[in-house]
Design a protein around this nucleic acid. Structure first.
Lengths: 355, 355
DNA sequence: TTGTAGGCGTTATCAT
DNA sequence: ATGATAACGCCTACAA
């Protein structure tokens, strides 16, 4: 029972707003018990239609807002899902975040979002914060995570989905693609165009299985054909168009003579295209360039960027859908692969004859 | 040792569905009362160093995780902030989201994120969901919100920050800039370059005060100079490079003869530049083009895009910082303006002589 | 410095 | 169909 006198004192002393109405107040206003009011709102079928109407109108009149923490404490579920993403300002993660949030909202769930800068410790800390907040499930990106994070999730019994990548062990829930395979397809395509001299601008591979696998895909494919990929022909660069430009500059200074350039992501590739054009290197006549991700701009620059289409919004949506299904006790297949087709546009072409 | 305890816990869970340890368990393991354990964790200075150490190690050993909902219920604060953003996949919002999340995390707060597609009703619903989750504060974008949303926030006594825009009434907390003024600067710059025939690709102005104000800035400036801006010279387009390309096409078909094109945002402007180049319209010799936002790519295309620099990450960071300050009872100035300088690059130049 | 006990706002298990 | 009443896990006066 609330202490009305304390409430009055507050009124007089600080002119404080009256506290938000509780279910208790709604019940009283509707002339029913607390229990009935609760049922009327969260299990309407259990209550007489007329009573229910009285409760609902009372709630409306008082502009009652349920208290999530109290509900969470009583039910032991928060209707909340956590996601910890590397820089959310990477456009591909941004669209996944949006899709995930929408998918969750449609089911009455809310997204708790944390981000970090490709730092496993920061990721662990962020995840811990989300778990304390009582998220019912979690979405992570890729498979490179601190062992302590996996332990934490498993000990807490929290369902989680890995995204973008497929779990190599195959026993964790994930929705993504084989970056190695897709990258191999790109490389293969260039080999078939007659290219023999390759260079690579890889994303930063540390703590990033996607970047690592993409690079491995190039390496494997070239090795299988007996083609060399000397160390000077491989540079790592962070994620931006400017980095792509600079990286191409470094490659050209260090080990010119390549006719095909495979990039770890689209911004890097677009940067490389811009830099090549600025140096009057004809793309694709003198240099073929391929990217990865298929961001919007890839189709808009000219020539259009050959790349791998990664359905990032779908990944976010699917991760949400799968998590929601699991929370309802449904079973989903452990590993879900999304299609990641090679998209051929204008930046790749036959190797120049003289090469 | 650490591995050992993890192993033991797993063993235990296997044999018996042990619920997660509560503070109670920690207290018992440390041989202190529940209250002391609580203080040791959330008000360490109130507890004897040695006792504190015992509690902390017990918590560690049991891998205790505080129950956020219970804590929130008891303290009436969730250490959580909500943000409801229009499509988070817009890169400018993405970087703000990232910065906001980081700023909050540094203070031990977590971000609840919801997004919508420029629909005030969806926004209202999303905000309501966040409020139910007990957020301590809220971040909104712009000033175009359902009156019911403002009522809701004020009734709940929730502190909130409007971002990107400045509140015209000047009495709501906000951190942003005058889109009208910045847009006027862009227009002014083009007028000074001798342009007299203008066209505009505006963002969709419905439910979007930023787009509306930017358009108004162009209109006002031209009107003040006695320059016309006929209706056929203004098109609205959603947010994308492809839309920018198409929009320029429409303008050229409908009312050619303009020498200056002001765009509501950078993707639209970049699309226009690409389309002009595809049509062999020299930029800026035959057509000057200006954007708004200064996304990364603006500086990378050639010629570089003249635009207004909007410090979106700063906006996110500041919104977080201001909200946190207010939650600590500090006062912040109601309206905080961020600098939004005009950035002159290569897409704008003197009007062609013959025009 | 530490312990005891009441309360935070719901849900859920009982009766009725 | 409805009502009374324990939980739920933690915080925090108040007492010792």
């Amino acid at each position: 029972m609330r202490d009305e006198s304390a409430f009055m004192v507050l009124q007089f002393r600080h002119m404080k707003r009256r506290p938000n109405p509780r279910l208790d107040d709604v019940a009283r206003a509707a002339g029913v018990s607390l229990a009935t009011a609760s049922r009327a709102l969260s299990a309407p079928q259990l209550v007489h239609a007329e009573t229910r109407a009285r409760v609902l109108s009372a709630a409306e009149r008082l502009s009652y807002v349920p208290h999530g923490a109290a509900r969470a404490l009583a039910t032991q579920r928060s209707r909340t899902v956590g996601a910890v993403f590397p820089p959310v300002d990477n456009p591909i993660f941004a669209s996944a975040t949006h899709a995930l949030a929408q998918e969750l909202a449609a089911a009455g769930f809310t997204l708790l979002l944390a981000s970090h800068d490709y730092d496993p410790d920061a990721e662990l800390a962020a995840a811990r914060a989300l778990i304390e907040r009582g998220v019912d499930g979690m979405v992570l990106v890729g498979t490179d995570h601190a062992p302590a994070l996996y332990r934490l999730l498993e000990q807490a019994g929290l369902p989680f989905e890995l995204t973008w990548s497929l779990d190599p062990g195959g026993f964790r829930h994930c929705v993504g693609l084989s970056h190695r395979l897709a990258s191999a397809h790109v490389t293969q395509h260039l080999v078939e165009l007659g290219h023999r001299e390759f260079a690579v601008i890889a994303g930063v591979v540390r703590y990033n299985d996607r970047a690592r696998e993409r690079l491995a895909g190039v390496r494997e494919t070239l090795a299988a054909r007996g083609l060399a990929l000397p160390a000077e022909r491989v540079v790592e660069a962070p994620f931006s168009v400017a980095d792509g430009r600079a990286a191409l500059g470094r490659l050209l200074a260090r080990a010119p003579g390549f006719t095909a350039l495979v990039c770890g992501n689209d911004p890097l590739a677009i940067g490389a295209v811009l830099e090549a054009q600025a140096r009057s290197i004809a793309v694709p006549q003198a240099l073929s360039i391929a990217g990865f991700d298929d961001v919007e701009l890839a189709a808009q620059i000219s020539p259009g960027l050959t790349t791998v289409h990664v359905p990032s919004a779908d990944i976010g949506r699917l991760a949400g859908r799968r998590l929601l299904a699991r929370l309802e006790g449904k079973r989903v297949r452990r590993s879900e692969e999304v299609p990641a087709p090679l998209v051929l546009r204008g930046t790749t072409g036959p190797a120049p004859r003289g090469a």
